[in-house]
Amino acid sequence: MSTALQVSNLVKRFGGLVATNNLSFSLKEGESLGLIGPNGAGKTTVFSQIMGELRQNSGTIELFGDEISTLSTPQRIRAGVSRTYQIPRPFGEMSVAENIRVGLMPDNIWQMIVSPPDTRRERELALSVGFLKADLGRMPTELAMGDLRKLEMARTMATAPKVMLLDEVFAGLTTGEIAQISDLIQSMRKDGMTFLIVSHDLPALEPLIDRAIAIERGTMIAEGTFSEVMNDKAVQASYLGGV
């Protein structure tokens, strides 16, 4: 298996605060990696740097062997990496189908004008995350948090990523919705999708990942299988408050 994502010696400073401290990790193609740590550990900052929403002070990010640090966010997405956000960001005055449509669009104005929307693919993506056909015309204001997360997943999947970064994908979901999203992730893993997943819901996260890394204040403190990381003394001291 080749390396899908390689993060090397990543450093991000906000004034005097070091948010990412010489962080290195890699993800093999088809692998699922959990990124865990307490609140404020810098997990979302790592995501933002991979996506180009924040520029690192130093270090490199490679996607399938190509350095992507100089690319803009849309270019990185076209290169094959996409993310969901902790707080869903739907297009408020567009239906579920139209929200997914934006993710499916080519980054080419002429193509946007001349080729019609792929409504079949919109429906497929909506159904794959657990929406019903009747939901396609619903507006985000009518959706519960779980549905908004599903919509976020569908729009991210619409960009045809090879590597998906999922940020707190279970936050605010009911047990049933967690099971639904988990099933979706498992089925995508079987299809070869590569995942980097941040979640505070550790029981839900465990079955979805091959290994985990734990960070604290931007520094990696443990790496290994889920149980190895959770049994690590440093992790227990920082993340679990020493229990």
Binding site: M51, S72, I77, R78, R89, F91, M94, V102, M105
Partner: peptide, 19 residues
């Protein structure tokens, strides 16, 4: 649709891979 989406949430449009 894409232009309207910019008016609603420009960051999400970028996050959908559009310049």
């Amino acid at each position: 649709t894409a232009l309207s989406a910019i008016g609603m949430n420009e960051e999400s449009v970028r996050g959908s891979g559009l310049s």
